[in-house]
Computed example of a mutant assay.
Amino acid sequence: MSSLDTVLARGRAAAKARMRDTVHLYSQAPDVFDRSSGNTVPGAKTTLYEGRARVKPVAQAGEDTEASEREVRLLEYEVSLPWDTPLPPGTRVLPGMRVEVTASRDARMVGLVLWVTGTQYGEQATAWRLTTEDRT
């Protein structure tokens, strides 16, 4: 093992130790309108990862935008997952996939659903980082 590999292993262990939240990373099929009930049924979810993570806000001030004729504020978050997080074969994390915070020491974060806007891959990274936004 080279000195770089040793440093990376230590960095990855330290990054993992800071991951105190639990998240559910998933993709969701489009919603379907049920004509018999008159309700929209959420599309099926496909789980890509469930486990520890670090969720932290990136920007204090979000971007105001309009969606479906209402004003929303887009707040950016960075979600760090363990560097060696496995994904189902042939799967890549794409914009539009979602991350739900299922457990956190900050109870206000539980239930927060974040939309993936980008992902960072890197052989020399200490964690796998997803760029996300809160669209509430």
Rank of each mutant, 00 (worst) to 15 (best):
R10V: 10
G11N: 15
R12W: 06
R12Y: 06
A13C: 01
A13I: 01
A15F: 05
A15V: 07
K16G: 10
A17G: 05
R18A: 15
M19W: 03
R20F: 01
T22K: 09
L25W: 02
Y26S: 06
A29S: 13
A29R: 09
A29M: 07
P30S: 06
D31H: 09
D31P: 03
D31K: 05
D31W: 10
D31M: 04
V32E: 11
R35H: 11
S37W: 07
S37G: 08
G38V: 07
T40F: 12
A44F: 04
T46S: 15
Q60D: 11
A61G: 01
G62E: 12
D64T: 15
T65R: 15
S68R: 14
S68M: 11
E69D: 15
E69N: 15
E69T: 11
R70Y: 09
V72S: 03
R73C: 09
R73K: 12
L74H: 05
L75T: 14
V79M: 04
L81Y: 09
V93D: 05
V93Y: 01
G96P: 07
M97D: 13
S104N: 05
R105A: 13
R105V: 10
V110L: 01
G111I: 02
V113F: 00
V116G: 08
T117M: 11
G118P: 08
T119W: 01
Y121E: 14
E123H: 10
W128D: 01
L130A: 04
L130C: 06
T132H: 02
D134V: 04
